[in-house]
Simulated assay, not measured.
Amino acid sequence: MKFTRSLCIGIMLLSHASYSQENRIHDLAFLVGDWEVREDNEENGWWEKSERTIQYALDSTYLQLDAKAISSSGKERVYRWYIHYNSKEEQFEMVSIFSNWHKIQLDILSWEAQTRTLTIQNKANSEEFHERLGQLVFNKDFTTYVWTGENKYGDPKDPSIWKYVEKGSKKVD
């Protein structure tokens, strides 16, 4: 009897965790769709334009972003992001994969619905120094955003700093 009760409780907890993951990823449903984006680094006179498509993946437990980009130097790249809600850690996590970068990037995302702000901050990486922090602030109808941020990398005592402003607009049919 105790085994059956424990088994039933275990199944209920697992199904709740799966439901929780799906439910929480839907907090970011406004991201789903097609976006036109421009990132600028005014200090370096550099820009990049990209088209992004965001959709649900893996039984709606992830958001998948696929992008094609071209920079002011004429370089093209593609990249993919996966966003997931980790119910154990109670946080959104993002994995970024770039065609022009040798490392997979891991970030933590914090969503603040009242201010429509999505904060992105990288996870600690023991291999090399790299800090990433940025905030995407969305308009009231979630059709545009401004992402202000910076990446620090290299020597932790004297890092290179990449400051950027990215503006995105959702394509409306």
Rank of each mutant, 00 (worst) to 15 (best):
148 T>W: 06
142 F>I: 07
25 I>Q: 05
118 L>E: 03
101 W>A: 05
143 T>H: 04
155 D>H: 01
126 S>L: 12
19 Y>W: 15
64 Q>N: 12
72 S>F: 06
127 E>H: 13
54 I>N: 00
19 Y>K: 12
48 E>S: 09
50 S>V: 00
127 E>R: 10
3 F>I: 08
155 D>C: 03
110 S>T: 10
82 Y>C: 04
98 F>E: 06
61 T>C: 04
163 K>I: 11
64 Q>C: 08
54 I>H: 01
128 E>I: 08
56 Y>E: 10
26 H>V: 08
145 Y>I: 09
106 L>T: 03
11 I>E: 01
73 S>N: 14
114 Q>R: 15
102 H>M: 10
30 F>I: 07
138 F>N: 08
160 S>G: 06
11 I>A: 11
20 S>L: 15
111 W>N: 07
10 G>Y: 05
45 G>F: 05
6 S>V: 13
12 M>I: 09
134 G>F: 10
5 R>D: 14
140 K>L: 04
14 L>C: 08
147 W>R: 12
168 G>H: 03
49 K>Y: 06
109 L>C: 05
130 H>S: 14
63 L>Q: 07
5 R>V: 15
31 L>E: 08
157 K>I: 00
143 T>G: 04
161 I>K: 08
112 E>M: 14
149 G>R: 14
145 Y>A: 11
49 K>M: 05
152 K>E: 06
15 S>E: 06
79 Y>A: 07
153 Y>R: 09
43 E>A: 15
26 H>W: 09
158 D>I: 02
111 W>E: 03
166 E>L: 04
44 N>K: 14
131 E>A: 15
169 S>G: 02
121 Q>M: 15
16 H>W: 12
78 V>M: 12
152 K>N: 02
167 K>Y: 04
66 D>F: 09
158 D>Q: 08
25 I>Y: 01
13 L>F: 13
10 G>T: 07
85 Y>Q: 02
38 R>N: 07
41 N>T: 13
110 S>L: 13
83 I>N: 00
120 I>D: 04
2 K>N: 15
16 H>I: 14
102 H>K: 12
117 T>V: 14
66 D>M: 11
74 G>H: 01
42 E>V: 15
154 G>E: 00
93 E>Y: 02
94 M>L: 15
64 Q>S: 09
6 S>P: 03
59 D>Y: 12
32 V>K: 10
14 L>Y: 01
16 H>Q: 13
108 I>L: 11
7 L>T: 12
96 S>L: 07
153 Y>G: 11
59 D>H: 09
50 S>H: 01
98 F>C: 05
69 A>S: 06
139 N>V: 05
71 S>R: 02
68 K>E: 09
31 L>Q: 05
159 P>V: 06
149 G>W: 03
19 Y>D: 10
61 T>G: 02
